[in-house]
Design a protein around this nucleic acid. Structure first.
Lengths: 116, 116
DNA sequence: TCGATATATTCCGATAAGGGAATATATAGT
DNA sequence: ACTATATATTCCCTTATCGGAATATATCGA
């Protein structure tokens, strides 16, 4: 077996920096292929190819407007990735939580000491 | 150029399903290589190789314990991925927000109508 | 229908992944 | 030093990437 195709799922699709850049850009509204290329300094064929990958995993949708194709972000397709990461949130919050509790302990020892 | 190496960053490293499985497992505590293999039904060399990738991007750390190597999750290395996804959160909350406002509108029109 | 613009597809070359099998290294116990 | 166990590394194979260049397709306007 080889590496999973980039079109296998959102995890593989967003591994590529350029594709994340495209998604970042589309988060601000729909764009044509050439607009994307101009904004990100990418050649047109590469943009089309990246968009094809993003399309296959439903991260973007297309709309015809004359000779242009306007691509739009479909953020829902990122949710599985976000959901997976959420299970780790507590791990990097624990430190902050401990700091929080520590501060609360200080509060108990020295109540109403706000401005001194 | 070819596809970015899996060791380039966390984004590329977590694209592989097995490696996400390993991280899920390590979220519950440190494990030896063979424990991981047993839990996930993976051959030992593949486990070592996946762990090597995860090590290079700092997603795990190792600790010697006799002949064993105990691997531990380093969740901090997932933060960049999580931070990137956070910028999209509002996009999939907007629908819910609109639903929320719609429900509040209903509340105004028909106050205290809870059980009918 | 023809020319121009916008986008998609194809072919190429270089790179590397991931599994399997075999082998190398490390550490413990005797 | 020798054996057994745990882990790492290497080799081979198939597959797929990504960029670049060239080409194909689509749509508009005259």
């Amino acid at each position: 077996m080889a590496r999973s195709p980039t079109t296998a799922d959102a995890f593989n699709a967003i591994a590529e920096r350029r594709r994340r850049d495209i998604l970042d850009l589309l988060a601000r509204g729909e764009r044509s292929v050439n607009q994307i290329g101009a904004a990100l300094d990418l050649a047109q064929p590469q943009v089309s190819k990246h968009l094809a990958v993003l399309s296959k995993v439903k991260l973007v949708s297309v709309r015809k407007a004359g000779q242009q194709r306007l691509y739009r972000l479909n953020a829902d397709a990122l949710k599985p990735v976000h959901d997976w990461l959420k299970t780790f949130e507590r791990l990097w919050n624990e430190r902050l939580d401990r700091l929080d509790e520590y501060l609360k302990e200080l509060q108990k020892e020295k109540p109403n000491d706000g401005d001194t």
